[in-house]
Amino acid sequence: MKTELRVAAYAVCVRDERILLARWVARDGAKRWTLPGGGMDHGEEPVETVVREVEEETGYRAEPVALLGIDSIRRSWLRRLGGPGDFQGLRILYEARVVGGELRNETGGSTDLAAWHPLDAVTALDRVELVDIGLQLWRDRPPLGRSSLTDPANG
C-alpha cells in the first residue's frame, strides 16, 4: 500500500468579526473556501510556512500570534496505477494577524480568490471542514489543541 504524509500550516485571521479565507480550486474544478495556508517545504519551519502561504494566497503579510492546535486527517484512495493508497494530512493551525500587504487574489496557485467573510455568515459558505475546525480551535482554545470536530472520542 502506498502511503503519503503531508504536513501543512494554516492561519486563522479574524479581525472586526470577519475571517480571512481563500477559495480553493480542486482538481475537478470545484471551488470551496478554506483557511489560507498550505504544505511545508522540506527544511521549512511551520511558522515560516504559514507566513509564506498567507502571503501567496492573500497578499497579506501575517504574523502568527498563537498555536491553536494540530489536526490530523486520514483518507484512503485507489491509485491510478495500482492498489490502494493511504493519505495522512497533519495540519498545524495558528492564530495570525495581518501586519502588512494588500488583499489580492493568488494567480497560478491552488486558490483563486481571497476575501474577508463575516463570522456569522461562514456557515452559509461552501467551505472545507478545516474552516470549521480552525474557528472552533480559535473560539475554544482547547488545552491539547485538538478539535472536538475530529476527535474520535466524540464520534
Rank of each mutant, 00 (worst) to 15 (best):
Y10F: 11
G38L: 04
L67G: 15
G83V: 02
P142H: 01
R23E: 00
E44D: 08
D120L: 04
M40D: 06
E17M: 07
L93E: 04
T58P: 05
L68H: 00
S147T: 03
G109K: 14
M40R: 03
P84T: 07
G83M: 09
F87K: 14
G69P: 14
H42C: 11
R6E: 09
L135P: 00
W138A: 00
D132N: 03
I92W: 04
G134Y: 01
T49Y: 13
A8Q: 12
R52D: 11
T123A: 11
D126T: 08
R127N: 09
E45H: 11
A11P: 04
N154S: 11
E57C: 05
D41T: 13
T150V: 12
G109M: 14
G101Q: 15
T49I: 15
R80S: 12
E102R: 15
G39F: 13
V99Y: 09
L20R: 00
E102P: 05
R15N: 12
T49H: 13
R91W: 06
Q136T: 06
I19Y: 01
W77N: 07
V50T: 14
G108P: 06
V54H: 12
D41E: 09
E56V: 13
E53Q: 05
W33H: 02
S76V: 09
L125R: 00
R141K: 14
A66R: 14
G43D: 07
R104V: 10
R146I: 07
P118W: 08
G145A: 11
R52E: 08
L135Y: 06
P46C: 07
T150L: 15
D41F: 08
G69V: 08
K31H: 14
L35N: 01
L90V: 03
R74C: 04
N105M: 15
T34E: 01
R80K: 14
A11K: 01
L144V: 05
G43W: 13
A30R: 02
A121K: 13
I92Y: 12
P36W: 01
D16M: 05
D151R: 15
L21I: 01
E106V: 09
A11E: 01
L68S: 02
G29Q: 02
R32Y: 13
A11F: 08
V50I: 05
D41C: 07
E95F: 07
A96Q: 05
D41Y: 05
P84Q: 15
V7S: 14
C13K: 12
A62K: 01
L119E: 00
W77G: 04
E44A: 05
E63T: 10
T107N: 15
L144F: 08
A124D: 13
R75N: 06
P142W: 00
A30S: 08
E17V: 09
V12F: 11
L149H: 08
L119W: 00
I19F: 05
W33K: 00
R104S: 14
W138T: 01
N105L: 07
R104M: 12
